[in-house]
Design a binder for these strands. Structure first.
Length: 912
RNA sequence: GGACCCUUAGCUCAGUUGGUUAGAGCGUUUCCUUGACAUGGAAAAGGUCACUGGUUCGAGUCCAGUAGGGUCCA
């Protein structure tokens, strides 16, 4: 066996094992009858994506779950893939074209799409490559893409079906229009941002009474040419005489517009009079509809003013037009005032420009299975972690609006609708849509394509990704479903995602699953997943969201280079508490790396300490363990190993990943390395305890590697192999993780039973050791290894100390520890195992010692007073549970005993 | 305007159903290269648990309110 190197070098180890895992198809999922499945579908990253810290966290957690599932013996499937990301990808490719001073229209639809596909093939898998660097154990042979032929088939099938079932309709409605991408957006793709602008106070002159004005406040004077009315509240006394009159539009082509009454007007806002521009505002559009007002469109799809806005504004960009409109109004005297004003403006999520409400023909979806989707979460068939996100989910479903699913893009699933050639689409009624002579809707398209024209629009990207949990498993093709094991792997077990896409994705997947999977079967068979774990958002040290534009996002690949993939994984998981946003701090990644190095060196120490025995199984190791040679530390360590195993088990069930990481960190570093291994150094010298001590180390390291493997897969695989835990040619995941009761039952059959007294003895030994170290440090002797100590203690305490003397003497750097009946005038410390004295009487600084003892006495006095007060309270004594009462009494006894001892020491020093 | 979350050591955070003297990592101070590891070891300092009131024998934990911060939806 090669010797383990002095420090852990991740680079070669990671490369070697990942290649090895791939070569032996370790991550391939097999649908085996009788083996419980554990399924995760990856939230498909955009093909335009590069790995961010968010991806690192999200995918590390998924990898942790799936690797642990394999160790537990599940048929584990982690299904990877990417999303075609309509707007995002089209924008990226168009940006490239713009460098050549071209637009997609210079190429035409077909040629442009060829370019996008070329881009996708060249760059679209970068992020999946990066996930491999992180150690992601996806079943790569199953990699999916939302524009793969079979996936497209699923998407179009769903469209055709939902149309047939009456959920889809076409309507001319107000949509969120992105002038940059020139497409409609769903409400969810609009981000509200506070914007500092101006509120303009504009007056409209009454037609029948020149000189009489009505004032309106608006943030958008450029839309005045599109005004077709002024609305006031019917009960507003200020405007009682105005209703039914006409006023002159102060900008754009001259026009007289009516003053109307509508209860939707907020009397408190502005002047209480509202300009109505039905073509450019959602609320105005609704008021316009109620009053049969014309809608005059003055802004084009690209965000410029058109001729209807009048010659001065025509051709101007909407923002330039706003300034110009204000100047024109000022010049004509119609602008009464202008004041700074902060309001919320909707921005396009992708293009980051203000959206323009715009009246267009779009395809809409009435969500299916809304009530059932609520019930699935409310009744606990789907459990959210943390649970509170279910409120957000339910609230959204309560107020759900129809989904605009059409996009005026080229990159995406083209809507499978064909119109009869020559048909006036704008005149189509709902009935016409269902007339096969006029509109054809199918997967295959019409038999006589020459007579038809296909819809130009594509589907919203989310209208494909909402099928992800089953379209990736072969749906709707029965043969493909069988091959992929849909029956076995659906519903998936856990979805790991960010709360920011709870509406975009999570809620919609639930509805899609309920609508399309296993019709007629119980809800728990149709839901797409049983658990949803919501990660926090990763922020920088100042708490800001990480973003490209701020440049505050570290490059994960750079972090992998510097700290290793395992270091990065362990670091990011240990700082990611459940449900809270995460402040990224690089020093935590560094401590992840340090932890790996510690693990490495503990194994190195084991290897240097003696030949490896038979480590091939838990039972093989137990066979080497001799309970007759156990000392207190062996009992205590195995007890901690069991409780750690139990605790980690529980933490996995509760999705408390960072707590589990910290639990393992603490167990390994403190209990194993700092205490047990340090103690081993003396025991390994003694021939009679040596073999047993090594076997215990082998046992603990084995279990620790198994427990840690999901978090840090590379180093644990390497050490597993180095220490001979698996037969050659096998991997750590070929082993099974035993839980605490399995270990107990295995150990019992080798005659091992943990001794509770030994476990408390070790707690007291630890207290003794730290008291002695502190005593040395206080007297500037920390580094001396030749100090002699004297101990006064009862027989029981001395018995414990004596039995472990070689170990603890080495740990505190004592040349000698002797028992005495009485010691006077030496610096001392009261410990859980008697009083310990420094045998250096000559160098005692009596004054400092008095100060220290007085301080300790003062402290213990406070504690005693508090405990006594508690016990003196009759309400406490009569109402507290017996165990608590008993604990308090014992505590008081211990405190008093300690005070007696401290007082004795203090008196021995005399008055100062 | 509505909803949800947060406020604990210098920093970032734990603290499970209320129950000994509130913990960890980082940082700080002092000491240590003793044959796993200086990516390490030892010791120490550091907290009126945002504030006010309530429930309780007992509150960081439960309830109400106040202040500050954040997120989402209008």
């Amino acid at each position: 066996m090669p010797e383990i190197s002095k420090s852990y070098e991740p680079r070669d180890v990671e490369r070697k094992w990942y290649a090895s895992w791939l070569a032996s198809r370790q991550f391939a999922a097999h649908a085996e009858p009788g083996r419980e499945p554990y399924t995760i579908v990856i939230p498909p990253p955009n093909v335009t994506g590069v790995l961010t810290m968010g991806h690192v966290l999200n995918n590390t957690l998924q990898d942790i779950l799936i690797r642990r599932a394999r160790l537990e013996g599940h048929a584990a499937l982690w299904l990877p893939g990417t999303d075609h990301a309509g707007i995002a990808t089209q924008t990226v490719v168009e940006r490239e074209l713009r460098k050549q001073r071209k637009t997609r229209h210079d190429f035409g639809r077909e040629k442009f799409l060829e370019q996008v596909w070329a881009w996708r093939h060249e760059k679209g898998n970068i992020i999946l490559e990066q996930l491999r660097r992180l150690g992601a154990s996806c079943d790569w042979d199953r990699t999916q893409f939302t524009m793969d032929p079979h996936y497209s088939r699923a998407v179009l099938t769903v469209f055709v079906e939902l149309f047939r079932r009456g959920h889809i309709y076409r309507g001319k409605r107000m949509v969120n229009w992105c002038p940059a991408s020139q497409t409609a957006l769903s409400d969810e793709e609009v981000i509200m941002k506070p914007v500092n602008g101006f509120l303009y106070r504009v007056r409209y002159e009454r037609v029948d009474a020149p000189g009489l004005f009505l004032e309106v406040k608006t943030t958008r004077p450029e839309t005045i040419p599109g005004d077709t009315a002024i609305a006031v509240h019917p009960d507003d006394p200020r405007y009682a005489g105005w209703i039914g009159r006409k006023v002159r539009r102060p900008l754009g082509p001259p026009a007289e517009i009516p003053v109307i009454a509508d209860t939707a007007v907020d009397r408190e806002f502005g002047t209480g009079a509202l300009k109505i521009t039905p073509a450019h505002d959602k609320a105005d559009f609704e008021i316009g509809n109620r009053h049969h007002l014309p809608a005059i469109e003055v802004i084009t799809a690209t965000g410029q003013m058109n001729d209807l806005a009048g010659p001065e504004l025509a051709g101007k960009d909407r923002f330039a037009a706003r300034k110009l409109a204000a100047e024109l109004l000022r010049a004509s005297g119609a602008l009464v005032a202008e004041e700074p004003y902060a309001n919320n403006v909707g921005y396009s999520e992708r293009a980051d420009v203000p959206v323009e409400p715009r009246l267009t023909w779009q395809w809409w979806l009435r969500y299916p299975r809304v009530e059932e989707a609520k019930a699935a979460v409310r009744d606990g068939h789907i459990r959210f972690h943390p649970e509170r996100w279910s409120k957000v989910y339910l609230h959204w479903l309560e107020n759900i609006q129809d989904w605009c699913i059409s996009r005026q893009l080229w990159w995406g699933h083209r809507i499978p609708v064909w119109y009869r050639r020559g048909l006036d689409r704008d005149a189509l009624t709902e009935a016409d849509l269902r007339d096969p002579a006029k509109v054809h809707i199918s997967l295959e398209g019409p038999a006589d394509p020459a007579d038809w024209v296909q819809e130009e629009d594509v589907l919203d990207t989310w209208a494909s990704s909402w099928l992800w949990p089953f379209a990736t498993l072969g749906w709707p093709d029965p043969a493909a479903q069988r091959a992929a094991g849909l029956d076995h792997f659906y519903p998936t077990t856990t979805l790991v995602t960010g709360p920011d896409i709870i509406f975009f994705w999570v809620a919609r997947m639930i509805m899609a699953g309920l609508e399309f999977m296993r019709p007629g079967e119980p809800i728990e068979r149709r839901i797409p997943f049983r658990h949803v774990y919501f990660t926090g958002i990763i922020r920088d040290a100042q708490g800001r969201k990480m973003s490209k534009s701020l440049g505050n996002s570290p490059d994960p690949l750079d972090l992998i280079e510097r700290y290793g993939a395992d270091g990065l994984r362990f670091g990011i998981v240990s700082i990611a508490p459940q449900g809270q946003d995460i402040r990224f701090q690089e020093d935590r990644i560094e401590s992840g790396k340090n932890f790996c190095n510690k693990l490495w060196n503990a194994c190195r120490f084991r290897q240097m300490s003696g030949e490896t025995g038979d480590n091939s199984s838990l039972r093989a190791i137990f066979a080497r363990i001799d309970p007759a040679r156990f000392d207190a530390d062996d009992h205590a360590l195995l007890d901690r190993l069991l409780s750690t195993t139990r605790e980690v088990d529980r933490q996995f069930q509760q999705f408390e990943f960072s707590a589990a990481a910290q639990q393992l960190y603490g167990f390994f570093w403190n209990d194993f390395c700092d205490w047990y291994v340090e103690g081993s150094k003396a025991r390994l010298q003694a021939p009679d305890t040596r073999a047993n001590c090594l076997a215990i180390q082998d046992l603990v390291l084995r279990q620790t590697l198994l427990l840690l493997h999901p978090f840090i897969p590379f180093i644990t695989e390497e050490l597993w192999s180095q220490l001979g835990y698996g037969p050659a040619g096998t991997f750590i995941e070929d082993a099974r993780l035993e839980n605490a009761s399995q270990i107990v039952s295995a150990s019992g059959s080798y005659g091992l039973h943990l001794d509770a007294a030994a476990i408390t003895a070790v707690e007291r030994l630890k207290g003794w050791v730290s008291a002695v170290r502190a005593l040395k440090a206080e007297h500037q002797l920390a580094s001396r290894r030749d100090v002699r100590f004297l101990v006064t203690a009862g027989d029981a305490d001395w018995g414990i100390l004596e039995a472990n003397l070689a170990k603890v003497a080495r740990m505190v750097g004592a040349a000698e520890v002797q028992r005495r009946v009485q010691v006077d005038g030496a610096p001392a410390a009261v410990t859980p195992l008697g009083t310990v004295y420094l045998d250096l009487a000559s160098s005692v600084d009596a004054g400092a010692e008095r100060v220290r003892l007085d301080r300790e006495l003062e402290q213990i006095g406070r504690h005693i007073a508090a405990t006594e007060a508690r016990l003196a309270n009759t309400a406490f004594v009569s109402k507290a549970p017996p165990a608590v009462l008993e604990g308090a009494r014992r505590q008081l006894a211990e405190q008093q005993a300690k005070r007696v001892e401290l007082e004795r020491l203090r008196q021995a020093l005399g008055a100062g």
